[in-house]
Amino acid sequence: MMEMEAVLPVRDALSSIWFDAVAEGRLLVQRDPLTGKAQMYPRARVVGAPDREPEWVEASGRAKLYSFTVVKRSLHPQFAALTPFTLAIVELEEGPRLTSWIVDVPEDELRCDMDLVAVFRQIHPGLVMPCFTKP
């Protein structure tokens, strides 16, 4: 009934900027205008410096695989039918990490620190999200 809604993003004014870019195939990150340090997830202010507003910049899409797990069983009704899927934490070239999926990479080829590039996939009906795969 409400199951799929329970995992779909509830957009707000700030996150809509990021999701609208994703829908156009662009991956945005934020950057501290003072130090140049990039941050994700998107926030209204610079992490640890709420007196500064970050600026949006487009990420290259290049990343390394920080860690991963192949989810074989899921208790979530929304995800049980999608197993197996490869959940990952990827580290963008710009520095921040994202939670994501690795797609089109066989399980035995997955290695921490392997090179990745962003691709955009529909992971739920009507929801395109950035995923990552081999370059």
């Binding site: 995992v7 991963f68 989810v71 979530h76 959940l87």
Partner: peptide, 22 residues
Amino acid sequence: GPTGPGQYEVPYGISTISAYAL
């Protein structure tokens, strides 16, 4: 939940065990 910070992670199906598995 899939609001605020969670909307960038929850849609990918992370769970308690998969978080520790990472």
